[in-house]
């Protein structure tokens, strides 16, 4: 068995085991219920913790195939997408939805491989403005506005 495959077979059961143990530790600090005969607020977390520990053993025995994590360009695209989405949600309130969305789309499209200047210059702005107008004005979904100079978009 290749080392990557072996790692792939062992890591999920170990993570499941660690999660189960962690849940049991946290559940130990949950206050007991006040009603008589109530199994209490810690009941469900305890059941899940024990189940996860049992399932980790089952997973070790039951070695099913898995895809494994991506490598190379695929991995870079996924990690960068997560980073860009994190930055997107961190900027959505400070700079507003239209500006944050346009910047996110610009970076994301470039990441995916779009290199045509005309597309990168127009599509993010059009999509961002279009979705903002649709949700904010047509559907009354409150999205944070972008202030450019004295103009509130």
């Amino acid at each position: 068995m290749r080392s990557a495959e072996r790692r792939g077979s062992v890591v999920p059961p170990l993570l499941t085991l660690a999660l189960g143990v962690g849940v049991l530790i946290v559940a130990a600090d949950i206050r007991p219920g006040m009603l008589p005969n109530d199994p209490g607020p810690a009941f469900l977390p305890r059941v899940v913790g024990v189940a996860l520990i049992g399932l980790s053993l089952w997973l070790m025995w039951d070695r099913e195939p898995h895809e494994g994590l991506p490598r190379g360009a695929g991995l870079i695209r996924v990690v960068m997408t997560i980073v860009l989405t994190t930055l997107y949600l961190m900027t959505i309130e400070p700079i507003g939805f239209p500006a944050a969305t346009a910047l996110f789309l610009l970076c994301q499209m470039w990441l995916i491989g779009i290199r045509r200047f005309a597309v990168l210059a127009t599509m993010p702005l059009l999509i961002s403005a279009g979705t903002y107008a649709l949700f904010r004005f047509a559907l009354d979904v409150p999205l944070p506005a972008t202030r450019i100079g004295g103009l509130l978009l």
């Binding site: 997408t81 989405t85 997107y88 949600l89 959505i92 939805f97 969305t101 996110f104 789309l105 994301q108 499209m109 995916i112 491989g113 779009i114 599509m123 999509i127 961002s128 979705t131 949700f135 979904v141 999205l143």
Partner: peptide, 14 residues
């Protein structure tokens, strides 16, 4: 797909 999936992420955020 290059237009579709970034837009899907925007919709997820909204």
């Amino acid at each position: 797909a290059a237009y579709l999936w970034p837009l899907v992420i925007v919709f997820c955020v909204i």
